[in-house]
Design a protein around this nucleic acid. Sequence first.
DNA 1: CGAATTTGACCAGCGC
DNA 2: GCGCTGGTCAAATTCG
Length: 622
Amino acid sequence: MAKGSGLSVDSDPIGFFCHQPMVLNSFPEDNPGREPKWKLGAMDAALTSSAPPTIPFNLNWSRRQDSPSSSDNKRTVIDEVDFFAEKQGRDNKASSTDTDRKDSRDCPVALEFNVNTGLNLLTTNTSSDQSMVDDGLSPNVEDKRAKSELAVLQTEFKRMKTENQRLKEMIDQVSTNYNTLRMHFVTLMKAQTSKNPEESGILVDGKVDGKNNGSLIVPRQFMDLRLATNGDANNENSLSTLMEGRSREWNRSGSPGKTAEVMASEFIMSKSGNLNEELAFHQDKKEDGSKIGRGDRSPDQASQEWSPPNKVPRFNPPKDVLHDQTEAATMRKARVSVRARSEAPMITDGCQWRKYGQKMAKGNPCPRAYYRCTMANGCPVRKQVQRCAEDQTILVTTYEGNHSHPLPPNAMAMASTTSSAAQMLLSGPMSSADGIMNSNFLTRTLLPCSSNMATISASAPFPTITLDLTQSPNPLQFQIPFPNLAQSISNAQTTSLPQIFGQALHNQSRFSGLQMSGQDMDRPSQLGHLQPHALALMNQLGQQNSLSDTLSAATAAIAADPNFTSALVAAITSIIGASSQTNNNSNNNANLTSTTSSNANLTSPSNSNGNNNISNSSFQGN
DNA sequence: CGAATTTGACCAGCGC
DNA sequence: GCGCTGGTCAAATTCG
């Protein structure tokens, strides 16, 4: 077995957490500098070695079990941690010592030892192996001991097999329960929405549980503009239904690209028929549509390119369409801000951008650059890039809009991340069978433990969610909360990797913080972790949207950092090395190293038309 | 020479 | 009404 091989994440979610220790020194050829230890008691001998604890891992266990005397057995496992040292100590007096058992217990991955990973733990002391060892014992004695050992190991194998089966059943059971609970939740959410839509808004006047410490206010209009502007329940339902269906479709197809904005756009087009796409995208800045265009461009031009809001051709759409436009406008205005450390002038997100402006922004000595997507004619997506005033190593990239064209794979990560975040931000009371995040639910569930990892700004003119990839010691390491994972495994008895990973990422990204921008945005996290019950609930309810969000964020992070693999390995190593510790351990800041061909000059202020009063940046969401 | 960037100017929204 | 600010345009400039 080559180094690095092992259970795949897909095939064994639980075993995934044993990956790191499994891959090292499993076989003699992987460890040429060490003395072969495949004589009797090899496992115990290995345990006493100074080498870091390793877990033998062999996908060919069945073959070896079937033909224990085959030549394959030359690949005898050595340097093993004896998972069942205690038990084996009882069964085989000749093996474990107290020290061995202690080592085994102290192994950081001891928790996972309870999981039957299907590992081949056999040392398979076969005659062929024994023949290689001259330990001075007579062949008869040696043979007897080998047989005895073999019998013990076979018994152990049977026991493991049984346990494995039991765990499989557990997984099935939990999966079934999970699906049932999820469906129940969705049903309840639907019922609540249809019964009293007003109550399903995110917040009432932005206060939650009487707490208004300045970090919990979210103007309702951003989350649920529909409810404030229209009582057309049919349309609401239609839109929700449409989105719900589309969301289901996309979830099935695995395409995270479309978001609420696109859905709204399509919905509008489907309803109004003669309205072109920019009616959805090119909403006027004013909801009441009073603003008029500057008149310096022809309608044809405006119809082919992304036109600023004040150049939208004026229509006289039906009232319900106006409502939908309002909603679409709100969605278009949703912004997703990504904070990442980067020395490059612009993070690489896979899209092609053209700079169309640069300005000095208030409160920040660094200019703000404006880009528009040039991957397709008329793509409405804009982004702003600006360095953080407080820490100029931090690059703040704010995205607005959704791409109206197919994206290359390397652009999907960031695009899906931002669109998912925007979708979540704007999801409002919408519910779906797939568990699109309900902001109300999100807020009520997670508000008590907001974070600076992801923040939702409501003070800005546009709802903005900020994904902070700088606060985390290493955002790319995800800080998989192994204590939580351990708890998940031990409490829930079993769980799936997506859930675990989702929870881990959710812990990390925590789309739960509802903060006023300009107050806590730049503060280190003082808000603590998600409450376990909230996490558990989120996890149990299988908020796929959240999961997709977090996974998207992870994907984006991966895309942004070519050193992800090493970072992940480092993360797992650190986690394994630090048993049962909290998550807020020290880590190194991870730089989102990005390569870009852009030569956008962010250091030469130009076109300053505002004062540079040093105050808190009013940049959207920052 | 075409594409991309720079940069001064313009416009709208908003607060006072 | 005025000034400030964010956002955008488009001519000028630079780049490949």
